[in-house]
Amino acid sequence: MSVRVEGGVIYLAGRCPVEDAEDLLRALEQDAQATVDITGLQRLHMALVQVLLAVRPAIQGQAAAGPLSREIFLRLISDNDRTPKNP
């Protein structure tokens, strides 16, 4: 299981396949204030990125280095993308 909920924190770990999108969405629905921890995350499917972008939970930790984590999470963490750019 790569989506784990513990004490108000949703941990994403390892490689998160498309099926995890539903688990992540359900966890975020149950606790709208939950923080998502990406410390142990190695890879994630587009489906999960969409959920994060749409729901916009607080993100903590640093994902594995790489252009994708830089491009995706930096923006999520610094909250640059809150307003849709393509209205």
Binding site: E22, Q50, I72
Partner: peptide, 26 residues
């Protein structure tokens, strides 16, 4: 890759309750 942006295809992201986790909306 020099820059990347993931944008909602329909202009804005759906609300959490209406989100279909298995449809690509981006």
């Amino acid at each position: 890759l020099v820059a990347l942006a993931i944008l909602p295809a329909e202009g804005s992201w759906p609300r959490t309750a209406e989100l279909d986790p298995f449809a690509c909306l981006s």
